[in-house]
Amino acid sequence: MNSYKPLGRIGDLVRAFGSAVSAAAAIERGHRPKNHDLVKLGINPEHFDGIRRY
């Protein structure tokens, strides 16, 4: 059986883009992004809390 799923990769890309948009919108509003959005973007939520605004 062939496990190659090109549409699966496109779905992953769309979900990553959605997480990026969601995280950016939360930052713009002055809120903290959701953990699952940060994880999808490869950001450790615990390390994100250490980021300070300048």
Rank of each mutant, 00 (worst) to 15 (best):
V39Y: 02
P45M: 08
A16F: 00
G30R: 03
R29T: 04
G50Y: 09
R32T: 10
A20W: 08
G42F: 06
P45K: 02
V39E: 14
S3D: 07
N2P: 15
V39Q: 13
S22I: 03
I43E: 03
N2E: 15
Y4I: 15
A16W: 03
F17P: 00
D37P: 01
G42E: 06
G50S: 13
E28V: 10
K34V: 06
I51H: 01
G11H: 07
E28F: 11
G11C: 03
A20R: 08
Y54D: 11
G18Q: 05
R9F: 08
R9W: 04
R52A: 04
A16N: 02
V39R: 15
R15Q: 13
I51R: 03
L41S: 01
H36S: 12
G18K: 07
R15A: 12
H36G: 06
V39I: 15
K34D: 02
K34C: 01
H36K: 12
K40G: 01
K5Q: 15
G42H: 04
I27C: 03
P45G: 12
F17A: 09
E28C: 08
L7Y: 14
D49N: 09
P6V: 11
Y54A: 14
D37Q: 08
H47D: 14
I51V: 07
R52Q: 08
R9D: 11
G8D: 15
V14D: 04
V14M: 08
A26L: 02
E46Q: 10
A20I: 01
N35E: 07
G42R: 06
E28D: 14
I10V: 13
N2K: 13
S19D: 03
V21L: 15
G18L: 03
I27H: 00
G8C: 09
R29V: 03
R29E: 12
S19I: 02
H31E: 15
A20E: 06
R32E: 09
M1V: 07
D49L: 13
H36V: 07
E28T: 11
N2T: 14
H31S: 15
V39M: 12
P6F: 11
D49G: 05
N35V: 06
R52W: 02
V14P: 00
A24M: 14
M1F: 12
V14F: 06
N44Q: 10
K5V: 14
R32Y: 07
H31L: 13
L13M: 11
H31F: 13
I10S: 06
S3C: 06
N35Q: 03
E28G: 13
A26I: 07
L13R: 05
G18T: 03
G42C: 04
I27N: 04
K34W: 02
K34Q: 04
R15C: 02
K34A: 08
D37S: 10
A26Q: 11
G11Q: 11
L41Y: 00
N35G: 04
K40R: 09
D12Q: 14
S3P: 02
A23S: 14
D49P: 00
G50F: 10
F48N: 09
N35M: 03
L13V: 09
K34L: 04
P33Y: 10
L13D: 05
D12V: 10
M1R: 10
A26H: 00
G8H: 13
K5M: 13
M1W: 11
R29S: 11
K40D: 08
Y4Q: 14
S3K: 07
A26N: 01
R53S: 09
R29P: 00
L41K: 01
F17R: 07
